[in-house]
Design a protein around this nucleic acid. Structure first.
Lengths: 128, 128
DNA sequence: ATGATATTGATAATGATTATCATTTGCATC
DNA sequence: GATGCAAATGATAATCATTATCAATATCAT
């Protein structure tokens, strides 16, 4: 049975209080700075526990996994390859088209991940 | 200046001759078995060189990068979480919807990656 | 208080990928 | 054919995120 310990609560609060996407290392440092340090292994385990409890969402990027609030509806991501900003978007039609193309192949969908890479508005305008 | 050496040609031939998605380690072993061994670092560098030359495509999965032929049109992937099979699909409407949602945000798209996770037809039927 | 169970934390281990660096190869030029 | 240069190669060390190990600790019901 998974417990929502005070440390896990701290992790959850930290993420819920922000709009960012955090990786384990960033969280460990932020919590240490906030005066509530916890071992890095505990951070990893806590994040995994919170995610499997549905209290956090995550995106698995090429190199690392980043966690975000779970209190929103499903969405996908757009990542700026210049400044690293992560924007979220939801597109019901894209979702349903995915399901239909999967169904055509006899595929039982359990999840998906769509990431669009490019330059955000600000970085697109840098070059002007 | 990047050279297409005989070893890189061997890598390319190996991938082009198959329908699989290969990771660096699998390729190193397969090439060794085929009697043309090459250092693992050379495999990594060769794959990166071939990809940047547009001769190979790749998908970056959670843990590792897999390479595939580049002689097909752009497509996305469906991965069976049970048997590991990777199926390809193309869906022009999904593509164009992505571009339009990105444009709405002022985002200049350079690429994207869509992966659908689930059970392939065969594995879906296992449980019946 | 007693146990049973889950968590924590320090640290080792893992696994994919990249960096290092001395050596070798391929090619153009003399 | 010799020389020189730029790029490639290979063995191996290093990196980096993540997971495993394991002893110590906390939580909670009885």
């Amino acid at each position: 049975m998974v417990k929502l310990t005070s440390q896990r609560q701290a992790l959850l609060d930290f993420i819920n209080a922000s709009n960012r996407h955090w990786d384990a290392d960033e969280l460990a440092r932020a919590l240490a700075d906030a005066g509530t340090p916890m071992g890095i292994a505990t951070v990893y385990r806590g994040l995994a526990a919170l995610e499997s409890a549905g209290l956090l969402d995550s995106i698995q990027l090429a190199d690392k996994k980043r966690y975000e609030r779970a209190d929103k509806a499903h969405h996908d991501h757009m990542i700026c390859t210049d400044c690293g900003a992560i924007e979220e978007f939801a597109h019901p039609t894209i979702e349903s088209l995915q399901l239909s193309v999967a169904a055509d192949r006899g595929f039982t969908v359990s999840g998906h991940q769509l990431v669009i890479f490019g330059l955000c508005r600000g970085c697109s305008n840098q070059g002007l």
